[in-house]
Every structure is written in C-alpha cells, then in structure tokens.
Design a protein around this nucleic acid. Structure first.
Lengths: 146, 146
DNA sequence: CCATAACTGTCACTTTTGTAACTATCAAGG
DNA sequence: CCTTGATAGTTACAAAAGTGACAGTTATGG
C-alpha cells in the first residue's frame, strides 16, 4: 500500500508555516518600536478590542497558554498599561482593563496593525484574503477551545 | 479620529490562533505515541515527503529557525531516523536523508496525519477547507522566506 | 593569488515556554 | 456546616527557543 500523502496539503503544517511567516514579520515591527513580545501584544490587543476581560478569557480568545497570559499580564501591569480590578462576586477572578496609558499605546499599535493589514492586502490580493478569512472563521466556530 | 479596528479581522492574530489550535491538537497525538516534538515531526515530514534536503532547505520549507532545525536533526539522528550525507561539491552543506527506520516511523506518522486530516475535513467542512487552502497558497506564493 | 564578504551549520548563553504543583476561592451535595 | 471537586491564577522547575558568535567553507573581485 502506497502513501498518497502530500505535506503540501497538510493543514497543520501549512497553517503553522503561514502563521509564523505572517506573525513574525509583524512582530518585528512592534518589537523594535515598543520592546514588546508577542504574548504581550496579543494580550493588549484582546483587552483593547474587547474591553474588560479575565486572564482565562484572554487565553481562550487568543489560544495562549495560561502561564503565557499570566506573564504577559504582569509585564503590562508593570508598564502601567493595564490594571487589575477585583471581582465582587468571585474573588478568584481578576478583571483586567487597560489604563489610559495602555489605551494610548494600544492606539499606536493599532495604527501599525492597520498599516500591516494594508501591506498584506496588496501582497495577497483581496480575493485570497477573503477566502482565507472564511476558512479561519470555520476553524473558529468548529474548534472551540479544547 | 476613531478606530475602526477589529481584532477579529486581523490576520496575524487569527492565523496564529487557528494554527495553534489545529497544530497542538495534532501534536498531542504523536507526542504520546512517539515522544516527538513539533520541530522533530516537521523535520521528519519534510524529509519524508521531499527526500534529500539540507538543513537550510528544511528551515525555509517549514519556516523554522535554523537552530530549531539543527536540534531536531540531531535528535532524529540520535534515534537513527536520519543520516547525514556529505556534499561532494560544497563541504559546508549536509544532505539529510531518512534511514529505513526513519521512513518506517514516517509512514506511521503519515497514517496519523491522514486520520487527523479526516477529522478536520468532517469538522470544518470540505468547502471551508478548500477556501482555507486557497488562502494559504496565496501566502506561500507571495511571502517568500523573509 | 589574496582579501573580503557571504554562507552553512553548531554552540554557549540567555530568554521564553510548558508542566505540574500549589494557594485561594467557589460550588454542589450530603 | 463540611467534604469533595472544580476553577482562577501564580510559581518553581525543567524543557525548548532565540541571539549572537564562531569555525569551516565557498564565492567574488581586485
């Protein structure tokens, strides 16, 4: 029995490769302007766009391990970019929120993100981008945080 | 000026999240059967499907950092799953090739991969999968190894 | 030729990450 | 109440990753 397996059609491999290329290129930008790691940017982005969230929610939203989130939260807190707000109903939970300073930097990073989005759109073409997004949506709806 | 930025449409973020979910779920499978890391699997897969390659080529193909590849190669070599073949024209280069033992394990892993492909296909739907693949192809052709 | 620059792969060093255990808290059921 | 089990977040430790420098080799251009 022979193997009709082609790595070029294997989704996990391709997806990782694409994500790595796209994400590292963007990370290189904010890294030198803000000395920020990827987990930190993702945490900031989640809070900036969703408002108040808990660490667990951030982890589910961004598919980051909880210790990664924990460390990113601490780093952002030390920069005074976010603050912890204790939950009145459940004292295990910490509600996280950007400070005005954090929101300000968030806006700057959003500008960079939008610029990069432009780059990607001209690079990939609008049609391919749409198809990609449809596929990602399917993943997001069917692969609930395992 | 307000911000019409939506994280839910930002490609690097979404791509990473999807890749992480899809790839970790598969990694969990071969990890417990083979005690294999993701770089090791990717290296094995690249060699298994492309035949002889150099470390640099593997890195470009899989978007892995060269030290990651170097370590994965060493690990696979210690298992006797691959062998190094010196290049006659350029002595800096090491041509890498799977051993029969390596190919045997490659086949087992391919079977797992195909099984997972099935899972994904039923989970995501054939249509979404096709769109996703078209999008990935666009990335692959336009984002040459930076 | 020779000097310089570029390239391949590895290593020491440092940083980042995951694992598993832990504290503190809450929830359910007797 | 009290016990058991689950959950949120942190941490110590170990594993993995990136950085920068390196040795060895090849390419380029005087």
């Amino acid at each position: 029995m022979d193997l009709p397996f082609d790595l070029e059609t294997f989704l996990p491999y391709r997806l990782n490769r694409a994500a790595e290329r796209i994400s590292l290129r963007f990370a290189a930008r904010y890294r030198e302007s803000f000395q920020m790691t990827r987990p930190e940017w993702r945490t900031l982005a989640a809070l900036g766009s969703c408002g108040q969230m808990t660490a667990t929610e951030i982890g589910a939203h961004s598919a980051m391990h909880k210790t990664k989130v924990s460390r990113a939260v601490r780093a952002l807190e030390q920069r005074r970019w976010l603050k912890r707000i204790e939950d009145t109903k459940d004292r295990r939970v910490e509600n996280l929120e950007l400070t005005p300073l954090g929101r300000q930097h968030y806006r700057e990073l959003v500008a960079m993100a939008q610029d990069y989005e432009q780059t990607l759109q001209t690079l990939l073409g609008k049609d391919a981008l749409t198809q990609l997004e449809n596929g990602l949506t399917a993943i997001e709806t069917s692969m609930t945080p395992s």
